[in-house]
């Protein structure tokens, strides 16, 4: 009894399927099939290439950023602005005195060379400290050492200037006699 509907449908299924799709449908499908085949391939290729380009760009930007980050130098001024000012003052004084030393020592190249190598050693130490500053956990200590180094450089160059002056004075006196 309860399966009457099911049985009826089963027995008469054919009569339920009398509607047919329109004749134009196959030509639509055919047109799509013609369109799809070549397009799909090139589009896939294009898509892959754009994905690759995107990836490359992303990786590039990422590493570029990382590179920049590691390249950003830590300066003493970053640790302590006062120290930064001090550094600028010291280095400009040293530079100034070095110029005058060069002029005054023109008459005595051997002595000048000696002075320059002494200064060079100290300056190497300074550059080494500057490198340590990038990685050192105790940055203020390294900063202080850098200041100390500059101070010594300044004292040394002042002394060198003094000596050069003395030598020149002596030479002058000798000439006048």
């Amino acid at each position: 009894m309860s399966n009457k509907l099911e049985g009826f449908v089963r027995d008469n299924k054919r009569e339920f399927e009398v509607k047919v799709p329109s004749d134009a449908l196959w030509s639509k499908i055919e047109a799509e099939l013609d369109k799809k085949k070549p397009v799909k391939k090139t589009f896939g290729m294009y898509q892959w290439m754009s994905i690759a380009a995107m990836l490359l760009l992303t990786v590039g930007v990422y590493f570029g950023y990382q590179y920049q980050k590691t390249n950003a130098e830590i300066l003493v001024a970053d640790i302590n602005p006062g120290m930064g000012k001090k550094e600028v003052r010291f280095t400009s004084l040293i530079e100034e005195k070095r110029d005058s030393l060069q002029i005054l020592a023109a008459t005595d190249p051997a002595l000048y060379k000696q002075f320059i190598t002494d200064m060079g050693k100290l300056d190497n130490d300074y550059q080494e400290l500057k490198r340590q500053l990038q990685t050192s956990p105790n940055k203020s200590l390294v900063g202080k050492a850098m200041m100390k180094n500059l101070e010594i450089q300044l004292q040394m160059i002042s002394q060198q200037l003094y000596i050069i002056n003395q030598v020149n004075q002596y030479k002058k006196e000798e000439n006048s006699i």
Partner: peptide, 10 residues
């Protein structure tokens, strides 16, 4: 297509 269209359409 000819074989299946009508059945699938229904």
């Amino acid at each position: 297509y000819k074989l299946y269209a009508t059945a699938m359409y229904n």
